[in-house]
Amino acid sequence: MSTVIRSAGLGKKYRSRWALSDCSLEVPSGRVVGLVGPNGAGKSTFLNLAVGMLAPSAGEIEVLGERPTGRSAPRTRVGYVGQDTPTYAGLSVADHLRLGAHLNPGWDETQARQRVARLGLDPKQRAGRLSGGQRAQLALTLGLAKRPELLLLDEPVAALDPLARREFLQDLMEAVAEQDLSVVLSSHLVSDVERACDFLIVLVDSRVQVAGDIEELLGSHLRLTGPRRDPATLPAAQEVVTASHTDRQSTYVVRTDAPVLDPAWEVSRLTLEDLVLAYMSRQALARADARPSLEALR
C-alpha cells in the first residue's frame, strides 16, 4: 500500500464552528509525518477522525484503504496514543500490559516486556506514580506492542521535559527503523518533530496550509530580498507565500520549482521553522483581511 491516509474535502463541525474544513490529503506509507499547527488548529480533530473516534461532517477519509468508522475499520492495524499519554492511574504497569494483550489480537508480549525492562519500569508500579516521561513511554510501549501498521500520536512530547522528549523520540525512531511502521505525530512546535519527521502537514485555523515531503518543501521555498518590488511583477511560477516591504526593500517567501535567476534578488533558503511560520503568518493576514469586509456586511 502506498497511501496510509487519504482524505477529500474532509471537515468536522462542532455546533456552528468548523474545527477542520476542506482537508484533502494523501499521506504516503512508510513515513514519519509531522502534523504541525498552533493549539486549536484542528490537529486532534484530524487524528480523531483518522482513528474513527469522530465521524466526518463533510467529505471523507480513508485509513489503510478503509473508512475508520465503517464496518471493516482497520482498528487492529492502527495504533493511537491520545493527548497527555493516557494511562490508568490506578492500574500497575503489568496491568496495562495484560489489558493490552487482552484487547489486541496481534499483541507482541515479548516486545512489550522487553521495552518495560529496558525502560527500567517496575511492573508492580501504579501508572499514577510514574513520572510524565515514564507514562509517555508506557503509552508508547502499548501503542507499539499492538504491532500497528500506522501509529497516530497526539502531542506525544508536549508535556515532557527536554531529556524525556529526546528519549521518547529516540525510542520512537528506533521502533520505526525496526518495524514496518508509518507514523503521524502532532505538535504545536516544529522544533519538537523536525528531526524525526520526513513529511510535514501544516494546519492553521482548521485548514491545511501546506503538506509534503520535508526535503522537497525546503528545496522549493526561497526567501528573496531586494529592492522594493510589486508582487505583480514576479514571474508567475513564483507563488508568493508572504511578502513584506519597507519603503526601499521587499522580502518575499516564494514557492517555486525553478531557480531564481533575477540578479536583483538575494536568494536564501528557509529553515523548516521559517517555512511553517511563513504559512502561519499568511493565514493570520488572511484572517485580518477578512474581518473588515465581514463587518461591512453587517
Binding site: 512508510g30 514519519v32 525512531m173 520505526v176 528531526r195 524525526a196
Partner: peptide
C-alpha cells in the same frame, strides 16, 4: 547501523 544512529540522534531512519 541505521538503528544505532537513529537511537542516538532521535532522527528519522530514512535520513
Amino acid at each position: 547501523t541505521v538503528k544505532e544512529v537513529v537511537a542516538h540522534l532521535a532522527i528519522n531512519p530514512n535520513t
